[in-house]
């Protein structure tokens, strides 16, 4: 990166360290912080959407919709995360490619499933085999967002369902007694009061989500934990910058990073909670 770093093996002390910490490989780790933060921000809207959809489905008066809601939350919550993360993205990836194969390569006669192999035509690949590596990573990132959204959406649905039930019935009955429609009752009274019951659970889920981001690696997206592990491991002379096992330093930095992230989150949640619980006696 710098002039002085041209001959790493001749460097010592702080110069060596500053060159070492600015290698492109380290830059990849710093970049992966953005990947993690980007994932956290990208998954929130779909998680809340699925959470509300699931919670409202479970409250539906229409039985099949209710079953769908209960089925979604129970199945996803019942399956261990790691199994879900291993299985679902591959299934989704294959489903997308299978559909594209059927549309774009209708003339191909060979079956898609050949023994163990899943083979679609080149035009059906997602992304195309010739696409830049960036698109492969973007696709992996998208799969990750969808998978995280489905998993955490189910937990969120459960939290919101519980919170909606926790609002005292008298509050809703009063709204109806004053002539509010079901819709007005929901938006004017039920929703605003629900948050205070939902927020502790949602803040827990957010913390779990932060800690679950290393699962990204299972989806082929290199996150900060992957890089810390990779960079921290012992490096023999085959590497330009050889060093012994430094994982403890890298994991220490990770610890600080995640603690900082959770600390900021906690402060943010405290503020939101204070606002949502204005006037509610549960706050005290």
């Amino acid at each position: 990166m710098f002039e002085i770093c041209a001959e790493p093996r001749s460097l010592e002390g702080l110069t060596w360290l500053s060159c070492y910490l600015t290698t492109p490989k380290h830059a990849a780790m710093y970049y992966s912080i953005l990947t993690v933060l980007g994932l956290l921000l990208a998954v929130v809207p779909p998680i809340l959407f699925l959470g509300f959809a699931g919670a409202l489905a479970r409250r539906s008066k229409i039985a099949p919709v209710r079953w769908l809601g209960v089925g979604y939350t129970s199945i996803v919550r019942g399956v261990p995360d790691i199994v879900f993360f291993l299985f679902f993205p591959i299934a989704l990836d294959q489903a997308v490619e299978y559909i594209r194969h059927k549309i774009k390569c209708a003339d191909v006669l060979e079956p898609v499933y050949q023994g163990n192999d899943f083979v679609v035509c080149q035009a059906a690949k997602m992304p195309l085999g010739i696409a830049d590596q960036f698109y492969h990573e973007a696709w992996g990132f998208s799969l990750a967002v969808i998978t995280f959204a489905i998993v955490f959406g189910a937990f969120t649905a459960n939290t919101l369902h519980g919170a909606l039930n926790a609002v005292p019935k008298g509050q809703l009955e009063t709204a109806r007694a004053f002539g509010m429609s079901e819709r007005q009752t929901f938006w004017r009274v039920h929703m605003p009061q629900m948050w205070v019951y939902a927020l502790p659970g949602l803040s827990n889920l957010w913390m779990i989500l932060i800690k679950a981001t290393p699962l990204l690696f299972l989806l082929g997206v290199k996150d900060i934990v992957y890089w810390a592990k990779e960079l921290g491991g012992m490096k023999t002379q085959v590497y330009t910058y050889a060093h012994p096992d430094w994982r403890i330093w890298y994991f220490g930095a990770l610890l600080v990073f995640y603690l900082f992230l959770t600390w900021v989150s906690q402060r943010a949640f405290d503020r939101i909670f204070a606002r949502a619980s204005r006037g509610l006696s549960v706050a005290s």
């Binding site: 009063t174 709204a175 009274v189």
Partner: peptide, 9 residues
């Protein structure tokens, strides 16, 4: 109402 039921928010 007996329990007032003022909207708490």
């Amino acid at each position: 109402f007996q329990q007032f039921n003022l909207w708490s928010h």
